[in-house]
Amino acid sequence: MSFGITMTGFVALYVFMLAAFAGWVIIGNVPAILHTPLMSGSNFVHGIVVVGGLFALFNASTHLEQAIGFFAVLLGAGNAAGGYAVTDRMLAMFKRSDAEPKRAHHHARVHHLKKG
């Protein structure tokens, strides 16, 4: 038994195709007002590349591989952390004009999530 993943040829293409459609549809529903946070949010999502960097670095056996692997993790971590920080800051700024008085009702949920 093994939990290792092997993806070759067409299976990989199916994954790519479905992911591309999912991305197109999900992003297509985002209103223009959120395009900047959306872009930096999707920017954050490709920060997952840091996981690939860690894999490469852990398997490095020469100084050159170690140096480039270090570089990969460094940049990937910067991408993920920076992308998260700016997206979170931007999204926290978007408020409705009735946000204050209505907070006690249905906005309470949003408010609560923000604290957590």
Partner: peptide, 20 residues
């Protein structure tokens, strides 16, 4: 790297960037 999480995240963002 045979890592589907990277494949999916990358392609989702690729499609999103293309749409924008």
């Amino acid at each position: 790297l045979q890592n589907p999480a990277l494949m999916i995240a990358g392609m989702v963002v690729g499609a999103a960037g293309l749409l924008l």
